[in-house]
Simulated scan of single mutants.
Amino acid sequence: MNFEEFDAYFDRFTQDVFRLENLQHYAISAEDERVRAFREGTARPERSVRTEPWLARIAATAVAGKNWERVHVVDHPLSEYLRYELVGYVESQAAGEQIGIADRAADASLSTLGEDFWLFDSESPDAYAVLMHYDEAGHFVGFDHTVDPGVLDRCREQRDIVRRHSVGLNTYLAARKADVVPE
């Protein structure tokens, strides 16, 4: 699978898409400028439905009645990257994505999760998943599309686990403000 094929999955889904994120750091070169601005406390480049095709896509699918959701399983103290990413989640949420945060320490089941994935149209006969592969440093190394029933069941099970142990982004930010934005 190449990036164009991966990207097309976000135009194909008809009901819902769910993203599970387990890493505490993703090494994404396209984010370097924004991470640097976050670290230095300077203005970050605008990221909105007007400037970011990804956010415009989320907004368009939400308007079409499709559900776009992600849960990130986090460890405390938060890494610098996660504190940066939480700010970006606010922007994604404004575009229509439902964001949940699960504290890995909340339940032992959160320590047994597998790799990151996207799960599309999860309850339909046409369900499919894209498994995301990263190296130890958080660099993306590849992805695999699957319709294997066993893998889809595992993705649904992990989705349900993290949903049970997550709180909405606003609730998390309100409760953990000092962890997110140290004073």
Rank of each mutant, 00 (worst) to 15 (best):
R164N: 06
D16N: 12
F3K: 14
W68D: 09
V141H: 11
T51H: 01
P149H: 04
D116W: 03
V35D: 01
D144C: 02
E46D: 05
Q93A: 14
S29P: 08
F38L: 07
F3P: 09
R104C: 07
H145K: 12
V141E: 14
E136Y: 06
R176K: 10
V141D: 12
Q93P: 05
V49M: 06
M1Y: 13
A95N: 02
G88F: 05
S79K: 00
H145N: 07
R104K: 13
S92F: 12
D16K: 01
D116P: 02
S111Y: 06
E136M: 04
W54R: 11
R36P: 03
D103S: 11
Y128V: 13
V141N: 09
F120T: 06
A27I: 09
G96D: 08
R47C: 09
S166L: 08
T171I: 14
E91G: 01
R104E: 07
H145E: 11
P45G: 04
C155M: 09
D135Y: 10
E21W: 00
V141K: 12
D7Q: 09
H76Q: 13
T14A: 14
L113R: 08
L82D: 01
L152N: 08
A59Q: 13
Y128K: 12
F143W: 04
H139P: 06
E52V: 05
E33S: 13
L78G: 02
K177E: 15
D32P: 00
R83H: 03
S124E: 11
N2T: 07
A95S: 09
L169T: 06
G142E: 02
V17R: 01
D103W: 12
D148Y: 00
D153Y: 13
Q93I: 00
H145Q: 10
D116A: 05
S79G: 05
S111W: 12
G88P: 07
A43I: 15
Q24P: 12
R164C: 09
I58L: 05
N170C: 08
R164K: 15
A64I: 09
V90G: 14
T51D: 04
N67Q: 14
Y26K: 04
S109D: 07
V167R: 10
D126H: 11
R70A: 10
L169F: 03
R47Q: 07
R154G: 06
F143Q: 15
S111P: 01
F18K: 01
A37D: 04
D126K: 09
R154N: 10
P77D: 03
Y84Q: 04
Q93R: 15
E46Y: 00
L173C: 05
F117Q: 05
A106V: 04
R104S: 10
V167M: 11
A37F: 04
E21A: 00
H72P: 02
C155F: 02
G96P: 06
M1E: 10
V167Q: 13
K177Y: 05
Q98M: 10
V141P: 08
L78S: 08
V147A: 14
Q93H: 13
R50C: 06
M132L: 15
Y134K: 07
E31C: 08
V147L: 04
E183Y: 01
G65N: 04
L55Q: 09
T171E: 15
M132C: 12
A37Q: 09
F10T: 03
P125Y: 03
T14V: 15
I161F: 10
E91P: 11
W118Y: 15
Y81L: 03
S166H: 08
V181T: 15
V49L: 07
R83G: 01
A137C: 05
Q158A: 07
G65H: 07
